[in-house]
Computed example of a mutant assay.
Amino acid sequence: MGKFYLPLFALLVTAALGSGDMADKIKIQNENVVKAAAAELSKTLPKRVDPFTQLVAISAEGQMLAYTFKIDAAPKSDETIIKEGAERMKRNVTAGICATSNRFLQSGIVISYRYISAATGRELFRYDIKESDCDTLR
Rank of each mutant, 00 (worst) to 15 (best):
T53C: 12
G85P: 00
I58D: 05
S77K: 06
K27H: 14
V93H: 07
I111E: 08
L17S: 06
E84N: 13
G85F: 00
I129T: 05
D78C: 05
S117L: 01
E79V: 04
F125L: 06
G121R: 05
A36Q: 11
M1Q: 10
N32F: 06
P7R: 12
A10S: 12
F9N: 03
F4Q: 15
E131V: 07
P75T: 04
T68K: 03
K76W: 05
N32V: 02
A119Q: 15
L8I: 08
L55K: 12
L11E: 12
S112F: 03
F52Q: 08
F52M: 08
M1P: 11
T44D: 13
V13M: 11
A119P: 13
R114H: 12
E61P: 00
R88N: 14
D128S: 06
S59H: 01
A15K: 01
V49M: 14
C98K: 02
G62E: 00
Y5R: 11
I71L: 15
A86N: 09
I28Y: 11
D128C: 02
S101D: 09
F4C: 14
S77N: 05
S19L: 10
R122G: 01
A23Q: 10
A16G: 13
K130M: 05
P7K: 01
D24T: 10
N32H: 13
E31P: 03
P46E: 09
I109T: 01
C134R: 01
P46G: 09
Q29P: 02
C134D: 01
S107E: 08
